[in-house]
Design a protein around this nucleic acid. Sequence first.
DNA 1: GTTTAAAATTTAAACGTTTAAATCTATATA
DNA 2: TATATAGATTTAAACGTTTAAATTTTAAAC
Lengths: 335, 335
Amino acid sequence: MQKRVSLKDIAKKAGVSIATVSYVLSKQKNSGVSEEVSDKIRKIAKELNYRPNQIAKSLQSGKSHTIGLIVADISNPFFAQIARIVEDEAKKNGYTVIFGSSDEKASKSGDLIKFLLNRQVDGFIIAPSEASENQLQQLKEQKVPFVLIDRYFPEIETNFVAIDNQKAAFEAVSRLKANGKERIGMIAYDTKLHHMKERVKGYRDALTSEKYQDQLLQEVEFSKIKEDVPKAIDKLLSGEYPVDAIFFATNTLGVTGLKYFNEQNINVPDDIAVIVFDESEAFDFFYCPLTFVQQPLSDLAKKAVNVLAEQINKPTDKVSKIYLNTKLVIKKSCS
Amino acid sequence: MQKRVSLKDIAKKAGVSIATVSYVLSKQKNSGVSEEVSDKIRKIAKELNYRPNQIAKSLQSGKSHTIGLIVADISNPFFAQIARIVEDEAKKNGYTVIFGSSDEKASKSGDLIKFLLNRQVDGFIIAPSEASENQLQQLKEQKVPFVLIDRYFPEIETNFVAIDNQKAAFEAVSRLKANGKERIGMIAYDTKLHHMKERVKGYRDALTSEKYQDQLLQEVEFSKIKEDVPKAIDKLLSGEYPVDAIFFATNTLGVTGLKYFNEQNINVPDDIAVIVFDESEAFDFFYCPLTFVQQPLSDLAKKAVNVLAEQINKPTDKVSKIYLNTKLVIKKSCS
DNA sequence: GTTTAAAATTTAAACGTTTAAATCTATATA
DNA sequence: TATATAGATTTAAACGTTTAAATTTTAAAC
């Protein structure tokens, strides 16, 4: 990599001090320097194709103008979409984004946080993984600005941008009931993460019959949904009282479940009604249009960036807890 | 953000010079410093939870250990998957990834490159957009290490990791012919990008009848595929000799096309046979299993990182032009 | 008890910026 | 003409590291 031109080079060529060059090039308004000199400096800077060294600026200012985005998996369309919006919104605010995938593992997210902190990121947007409370607590102690997205821990006072998972789930399941479904199963992740627990809560709230509830909720592990979802479905469909509807707690679970339905020639909605939390491009091709809970991804991500930017610029102890509205998009699959 | 602890703080506490601390903490082997002192320093460093300031290191070393990844759109699963693998492979090599989306616009990619160069990235992995040759040429002149991925410009000598698009397309279309298809249309992007031209070339090579070829190839614009793909399909299916097969040049085009088929109740493969370049989760739900050209995404991304890392560590003028193999995954849609 | 060499530690400069403070240069004022 | 004042420019320190070179300390050799 060729040596880049610095203020020093310009100063030498212009026959002035580095400081003068800096004043000319870094101040918008002509602060002090004479027209003559500043014109000359700007001309030379252009000639030499000067590009300020952000690293040096960062060292000097203590700000890197970089934010760290930590999600479960950047290749998951849900997070990829968030990433894209974060990218655009961050750029508008003058920030660069460094991302990292935690694979839902606290150890990975911990490493990631340390790594990015070394890189002097100014703040974080995090979709936290299970058992990462202590990491967030530490960030708080070190007064590192951060905003949670998609998930949050109710017992920790932090900024977050999320949805009302319980309400959204309640609405969805209520819809199934309204459509006459009597035994509604749910497939969720086996995690303590609050957003998932809320979805389960909303589901439970909507159920009136208390019976069999334990068997109706199937929880699968993040790392082995390929095996666990089919098993869960089998369980829900077997026995004396097979379910007549399934509520999938995420798009990934939904996709996996629907694939299994296809393999087994289980028809939606004739054999079973379905509602999925979140959407997926894949659903567009499912033979039966799917009812799903739509999250305001774009607003979620934008808000997160804005809250973070504010927090970086004027840190306060007041936290922003933002809930955005979801929408239940009703199609044939739940009837 | 709380002030972080620096070498200075440790030095003060330990009663030694900053240099000594640096020697202890930055050298793996005990270079010179006595056991006693170095133990003490390490202990204090741990106590204070010292984390080296990468920014300062970067300024000093001229290396940021950061690479810039520029793709068309991070929210496109094709690129999101690449991003994920790049992330993992980069981490293995000690690099952080900053990403940016160009939206297939040269202007955006140009801005992005400048922006990231200011951030002192050590190198780039780029899926270049149309008319961005001059940007790459400039990078070459400035001796900035970079590797192209997915696309490349044959007239510019650069590192790249790609596939043989012509061959892959040829194979795909040949398959359609072998299955008795006689009028095979293609829907491609209207771009000068070489990879797309190669796909078209491969398609043309496979066609034997020379007639009507101009009408058989439909090119649509990146920015308005939603409108253009349906139009293109209408054209291909109307007239005296409607096509009996369509070859989609990318997964995005395929997804859009198949949606339109559904709207119009056009059946695959009865009404029309289909092959798509690239895969998509969505295809799993299409009623008819789709034949597609499978790219070795993971290897592509890994290779790109490795070539780049090598280029950064020992720059040479020799370029690596790497082609990886594709696989035609044959399903019912092309019969 | 010197001398000398080796080992341990420190000094100082550098990376490319910013910016307060100091200095220098005009010009206006008396 | 001397002086104050504003304007223009430079000096120097700082951000947190690294590292060559200089210095100091320790220990060995005589």
